[in-house]
Nucleic acid binder design. Sequence first.
DNA 1: CTGTATCCGCCCAGATACTG
DNA 2: CAGTATCTGGGCGGATACAG
Lengths: 222, 222
Amino acid sequence: MRSYGQYCSVAKALDVIGDRWTLLIVRELLARGPSRYTDLRSGLPGIATNLLADRLREMEAAGLVEREDAPPPIATTLFRLTDRGGELEPVLSALGRWGVPLMRDYRPEDAFLGQWLRLPVRMFLADHEPDRPSVSIQVRAGDQAVVIDADGGRVSLRLGADPDADATITGPPPRVLALFSGSVALDDAEEQGLQVTGSREAVQRVLPRAGRAAGADGTASA
Amino acid sequence: MRSYGQYCSVAKALDVIGDRWTLLIVRELLARGPSRYTDLRSGLPGIATNLLADRLREMEAAGLVEREDAPPPIATTLFRLTDRGGELEPVLSALGRWGVPLMRDYRPEDAFLGQWLRLPVRMFLADHEPDRPSVSIQVRAGDQAVVIDADGGRVSLRLGADPDADATITGPPPRVLALFSGSVALDDAEEQGLQVTGSREAVQRVLPRAGRAAGADGTASA
DNA sequence: CTGTATCCGCCCAGATACTG
DNA sequence: CAGTATCTGGGCGGATACAG
């Protein structure tokens, strides 16, 4: 990217991460951890392979990404964020939060991947009952299934289905996001097309509670 | 900007503010308040006038900016951030903080404007002695002079010179930024080419103190 | 003086095909 | 699996001309 040529830390930051796709690559690496080239590409629908290669090279040169040749049994290259790259997390977080109201407009052509729930889960969900036995909640939004685990105060997300989950949430991505971001209560979400089977208590355990809501309905306060 | 076509709040946010110059226009409007077209242009050295016009129109359509026809005596149009636009402040803040270590590389061709100190001042400086009489500190970095006022716990910045200031700091922009961001102590900054005349006490009153330092030297922790 | 519109040349983004 | 090579269109920067 052409430099802005301004001695200002915002401009300097944008000189490094202002290129198209760069921050989304960081998102993938934050959400997935060290990843193979092919996995990055499939997590970034719409990116051209040459652009991904270009960006990874630039990000490596800028010290955001390292490539690591995995040990013999795997025999592939992994891309991982450096510490400096990981420090972009607050930027992604602020951007993601600002973007929540925009999630109202869901277009049929929009791609959706279950792994993209990782950042919202980290941002909005919490285990409000850390002393109770762990629960798992399967989420089916879009094609892939993911499972959210609440265990001892921590909430995490793993990819894949789990028929033994305590609860299963099924519905279109916008309804799931509205529920997770706290802009819609569970009861209302169900009326709006979200199906919940199994333990509703397990779901309530992790949902954001009043006072922690994030104004995801577009009425966020300043 | 072409949409990423991804149902993810980061991607949606970048669909809106990912265009080149957009966030820098927000920076200007945050730092200066409602501004005339010409003032925006002079605060964004390097931007082409058509691009500025394009961006302002797009930002207006996206609900980030409003144009306001100023009352008769002024007879000009002012551009101001909407509430929604102002909510980008945390994004700018996170970006600016991440960019601080990049301020080490100062290139002679880099433009520098005094008003760009507004965000660093807000971010790093504080009035540590709110009960004492107000002080003003003139800063001469680059061509324009600015004055920092510490008054009753608040720190603010105004453009222009002030020969009656309690102290004056003169030096190259990188030295001033290093001082303000807390990565260099006042004594060290003076050894590195910063001139301080008048009350050093007034300067110390607003500088960041240990424990609030921001790792501006590139050693910031995760 | 302030703000907008038009033209041009260049580079980046994007799509596709292909290779180690 | 992990890219490179090639081609095309559009965004961008820059200059300039125009309108209130």
